[in-house]
């Protein structure tokens, strides 16, 4: 089971994530981003009244590229469409592609933080003792 923790640098914020495989890692990242955006203030996953499923598919050039784009998508859905990704079910995750169903809920909750974008800064997915780890910085 993947984990995440949030941290902050002098000017910005980030998440440290882990997962037993890429799917688990990406899921941890989505949860970590939600924690930064909403604290513990969103209904925990699945099945909320008024929720919709949004299929997200992306072909990338690396697992890092996929991670940045998945998080950018979640951020876009919150900031432009007011949709919170309450849960994520990843059906396929590899070094070059992802297919996932995002459970979206509409919410009037205002994000606690103005995250401008997901950066590639020092982003490298590493593997240790059968687990994958990464650290992602967000520009705020």
């Amino acid at each position: 089971m993947g984990k995440f923790e949030t941290f902050s640098t002098t000017a910005d914020v980030g998440i440290r994530i882990s997962g037993r495989d890429l799917a688990d890692l990406f899921k941890s990242a989505a949860k970590g981003l939600n924690r930064l955006l909403f604290g513990a203030g969103i209904p925990p996953g699945p099945a909320t009244a008024g929720s919709t499923i949004y299929n997200y598919e992306y072909q990338g050039d690396s697992a890092e590229n996929i991670l940045v784009n998945l998080l950018s998508e979640i951020l876009f859905l919150v900031q432009a469409r007011g949709k919170i990704t309450a849960d994520i079910r990843i059906t396929e995750a590899g070094e070059n592609s992802i297919n996932a169903d995002l459970l979206l809920i509409e919410s009037a909750i205002e994000p606690e933080m103005d995250i401008k974008y997901v950066t590639y800064h020092n982003l490298k997915i590493i593997e240790k003792k059968g687990m994958k780890y990464a650290e992602i910085i967000f520009d705020i």
Binding site: T6, F7, S8, T10, A11, V13, M113, I140
Partner: peptide, 9 residues
């Protein structure tokens, strides 16, 4: 001025 303290801090 530039920050000297993180937001969490």
């Amino acid at each position: 001025a530039g920050r000297k303290m993180s937001r969490h801090k």
